[in-house]
């Protein structure tokens, strides 16, 4: 790549091809970042864009920055992003419908105007000649940077060091939670639960009929609908519940059919209507309590 970087006012064809291909991908990645519904997807798209930018840095003769871009940005910072995304729980997918009146139009107008002005500005600028970094990088890119950092920019460098330490301490202070009162004992928590009329017993466990015991599979109520309480709130929030009630009931119905066939009994069993109503009972917001009540009614 050093040969590419050394080029003067125009670049080699190889770099041009690389630019047009990777540049397109970078723009797509950027667009994906702002358009993806889920934060995780946005983060991944951004990581892709950043890696492409790292390639561009290398192509421009900034070898040190290219590596730093990959290691620090894509490696560390984007991972920090993903970590926080997981920590915060990513409550479902972001709705992309706009709530502030006129915001979308204003944003589009401003963005368009800004972009056009910026590009016009660049087009007007007298940047026709590119000198290339052959001379500057003669003693090695890293050595050249080091010389600048520790001479001309040493003060700024020290200041950024102070800034980083401050940031580290700040993050610690911000996220540290001071416990201001004594922790509640188990007994106190139980009493509180009863007083507030919350769930007294432990929550029911996930899993269905000993067929599935994964944590993302909710348990079924007697009427065949799922009980939201059986899965963790985070999974519920992300919409990552795996609903197997339909198949389970179908299998149950098949089992009953077979056993009836074996026992040669009459055709009309109670399983039919139960099986029919399961699809309607299967929706995310269905409250568990009401489902159970209806289930009792059904059982008689």
């Amino acid at each position: 790549m050093s040969t590419l970087a050394a080029a003067a006012s125009t670049t080699s064809t190889g770099e041009a091809v690389q630019f047009w291909v990777l540049g397109t991908v970078a723009v797509i990645g950027a667009l994906a970042t702002i358009l993806m519904k889920k934060a995780v997807h946005s983060a991944l798209s951004l990581a892709g864009t950043m890696i492409i930018l790292a390639v561009f840095y290398l192509a421009n003769g900034a070898y040190f920055l290219g590596v730093v871009q990959i290691v620090v940005y894509t490696g560390a910072i984007m991972m920090l992003f993903l970590f926080v995304v997981m920590l915060v729980g990513v409550t479902a997918a972001d709705s992309l419908t706009e709530t502030i009146k006129g915001q979308r139009w204003l944003a589009a107008g401003c963005g368009l105007g800004f972009g056009i002005l910026l590009i016009a500005g660049i087009g007007n600028a007298s940047l026709k000649n590119s000198e290339g970094l052959a001379k500057a990088n003669a003693g090695g890119n890293v050595e050249g940077l080091a010389e600048l950092i520790f001479t001309k920019y040493v003060f700024a460098f020290e200041i950024t060091g102070a800034l980083l330490i401050t940031a580290a301490v700040g993050a610690m202070v911000l996220t540290h939670r001071e416990r201001t009162e004594r922790a509640k004992t188990q007994r106190e928590r139980a009493l509180l639960r009863i007083r507030e009329g919350k769930q007294i017993t432990p929550l029911p466990a996930p899993g269905v009929y000993a067929r599935h015991n994964a944590v993302d599979i909710p348990g079924l109520l007697p009427d065949g609908s799922i009980s939201e309480k059986t899965v963790s709130a985070t999974l519920r929030g992300r919409g990552q519940i795996r609903d197997v009630s339909g198949t389970s009931l179908a299998e149950l119905a098949a089992l009953e059919q077979r056993s009836e066939e074996w026992l040669e009994r009459g055709g009309d069993a109670e399983g039919g209507p139960t099986a029919q109503r399961t699809p309607s009972a299967r929706n995310g917001t269905h409250p568990g309590g009401a489902g159970e009540a209806r289930a009792e009614e059904e059982v008689k």
């Binding site: 900034a62 000649n129 590119s130 970094l133 500057a136 890119n141 940077l145």
Partner: peptide, 8 residues
């Protein structure tokens, strides 16, 4: 940086 030929 590339256009101006220095590392600043």
């Amino acid at each position: 940086s590339r256009m101006h030929g220095n590392l600043d």
